[in-house]
Design a binder for these strands. Structure first.
Lengths: 199, 199
DNA sequence: GTTGACACGTGAGGC
DNA sequence: TGCCTCACGTGTCAA
């Protein structure tokens, strides 16, 4: 108790801005608490320490933003190739359309264990390999194959030999070829499955 | 001048804590200035305003980090396919090694305007297309081609017909084939260049 | 007993 | 003038 207290308990202050100053102090303390609430790692509850922690946190965030930004730029550079591949495919599709080339295929018997096949489909990287893989799984072996790419399309004429006595399944091959060709453009990397699991 | 001043000008303070308190206050002010230096947008120089600005800046940074993080995850999902392709190539290389298959090629004449060629190289998506493209630019046309993929390798046996009277350049083809095969695994997407620009 | 941190009331100065 | 911000010295409490 000091001199500002009068006998009746009423408090007397020299300055009228006392309450205002109180409010100001409390406001600043509240802001500091808000700041502390945002910072995850707190070493101390000190006012100064809160600010220090906030500073190091901001620096950490800034570094994080820089790193992530760099990483994104790096990834963009890496994904550039893929976009090239995509634009390549778009170009192929447009060129095929321009020249009026349609996806098509023909399958005919040559003799009991050989068939002749012609396929025209849109050029795509790895497309021929996928086709070979699918045919191989279906039980056919490429004997003579001619491959030509032109105007965004791939033309495959091939003489196939059936294995496992599957040569009577040429009609099934005709039904499956659209799926095989479609699977070439699928986004998944799965190899073509054994037909026994499809049929 | 208040009561703490004595006639001789010496200052007398009740508390020894005074200098320590001065240091503490200055330290806090310094930290606040540091904080202000880190925050790009400053609305006011007020102590409270500095903290408010820092708060909103931290929130902005946090949001930025979240957004960048999301973007990276999105990109990672997109680039997943490419990593699959890469692992596919690694698998192919390992399998070739496991089976002791070496990259090799043979080129021989058949007659005046036909050559026979055998190439074994590591399986890669689009590799055969690149090979075809390179051979086409070099002035050769695929007549009969057999392609087989097995144990991570691609075996291409092919009968080629020379165009533009280039059939006397078979020796040059032998010299160029290593470069062609190497260009299949290059990271660039350029089509194989005309040999007149190489030789 | 000493040290550090804090809130308080107060006067100075700016707009 | 009044309002707002600041730095100051001080008392107090805890480690």
């Amino acid at each position: 108790m000091d001199s500002r207290h009068i006998n009746d308990g009423t408090e007397v202050y020299k300055s009228k801005n006392l309450v205002a100053e109180r409010r100001r102090r409390q406001k600043l303390s509240d802001r500091l608490l808000e700041l502390r609430a945002l910072v995850p790692i707190i070493t101390n509850m000190n006012k100064a320490t809160i600010i220090i922690d906030a500073i190091s946190y901001i620096q950490e965030l800034q570094k994080c933003v820089r790193d992530l930004s760099d990483e994104i730029h790096e990834m963009e550079a890496i994904c550039e190739e893929e976009s090239k591949t995509q634009s390549e495919e778009i170009d192929a599709a447009e060129e095929m359309k321009k020249w009026g080339i349609e996806t098509e295929f023909t399958v005919t018997h040559i003799d009991d264990n050989k068939i002749w096949m012609k396929i025209v489909f849109q050029k795509k990287r790895g497309g021929f390999t996928k086709l070979m893989n699918a045919m191989s799984v279906l039980g056919f072996e490429f004997i003579d194959t001619s491959v030509t790419t032109s105007k965004g399309a791939i033309l495959v004429t091939s003489c196939l030999e059936g294995m496992h006595g599957r040569m009577h399944e040429v009609d099934q091959l005709r039904e499956l070829l659209p799926d095989i060709i479609r699977s070439i453009y699928g986004d998944t990397d799965h190899t073509y499955m054994d037909p026994s699991q499809i049929l």
